[in-house]
């Protein structure tokens, strides 16, 4: 029981900081320090959120679906690329610089091109998300595979293990923790990527909703959707943590 108290304080402190910030913001708004049409008060934002709740949820569903499909495809492509690059050194030398290059291309710049090429439906959004998420996944998996202990690999070889078995019993489980670290980054990339690509064209989704309310100067709704997006990202990251804890029980014991 004693060990619980520090974790409670560590959760209380940031919560208190957030509450204080909201209180300051609310006071500044009610006191008229900032004009309401530029920066709505928290209460107004909450009201806007409640008012548009069904609409927000409908749009969030679309965005989440895009993010999820894009992320799943990104993981799959990243996994296959990492495995192939780990197997063939020549492929590693050939492809690695190319993969780094894809990351130097600004997302916002290629998004409109993707819309032009693939239309207003879901495809260009998914492609954009794949581009932003597969890089961290590939690199982290590859690093994990390459960090595998050489002695352990020798030991398994001495037991007559095949390359596939060495991968299954040593390399893959050894790469899990770096994979989850990159997955945490990738889920928020996926959500943000979906929103950005929706700005540039689409029929549904939080990004489309955002452009719509911006054009109507409904800043309260604008803030409501911003908070919703952060909340979704946080929730997803928490989900990744949970998944990690379930799939890596050996880490649990010494935490």
């Amino acid at each position: 029981m004693k060990r619980k108290s520090p974790s409670i304080t560590s959760k209380l402190l940031p919560a208190a900081a957030v509450l204080l910030l909201l209180a300051l913001w609310q006071t500044a708004s009610t006191a008229g320090l900032v004009p309401g049409f530029l920066l709505p008060s928290p209460v107004e934002v909450a009201k806007a959120f409640a008012e548009d709740f069904p609409l927000l949820m409908d749009n969030a569903w679309v965005t989440l679906l895009e993010a999820f499909i894009g992320l799943a495809a990104g993981i799959l492509i990243g996994f296959v690329t990492a495995v192939l690059m780990d197997c063939f050194t020549w492929l590693y030398s050939a492809v690695y610089p190319l993969i780094v290059l894809t990351q130097t291309v600004p997302t916002v710049a290629i998004a409109p091109l993707l819309v032009l090429w693939f239309g207003y439906e879901m495809l260009p959004k998914v492609i954009l998300i794949v581009i932003v998420t597969f890089f961290p996944i590939t690199v982290s998996l590859l690093d994990g595979f390459r960090a595998a202990d050489q002695d352990t690999i020798s030991l398994l070889r001495s037991m007559g293990a095949s390359r596939a078995q060495i991968f299954r019993y040593v390399k893959f489980p050894g790469a899990l923790s770096s994979f989850f670290a990159s997955l945490r980054i990738s889920v928020s990339y996926a959500v943000v990527g979906a929103v950005i690509s929706e700005w540039l064209g689409g029929f549904n989704g939080l990004g489309v909703y955002m452009t719509r309310v911006k054009k109507a100067f409904s800043f309260d709704k604008m803030f409501a959707v911003i908070f919703l997006i952060s909340a979704i990202s946080l929730l997803l990251m928490w989900g990744v943590n949970l998944l990690q804890r379930i799939s890596m029980p050996w880490e649990e014991e010494h935490r």
Binding site: D151, L155, R157, S158, M159, G160, Y169, P173, W250
Partner: peptide, 19 residues
């Protein structure tokens, strides 16, 4: 030909993620 005799190396080399 590997896989004929058992070999135990200096370190225990137990896989940390397996019971």
């Amino acid at each position: 030909c590997p896989g004929q005799v058992s070999y135990m190396m200096q370190k225990d080399l137990l896989l940390p993620y397996r019971t």
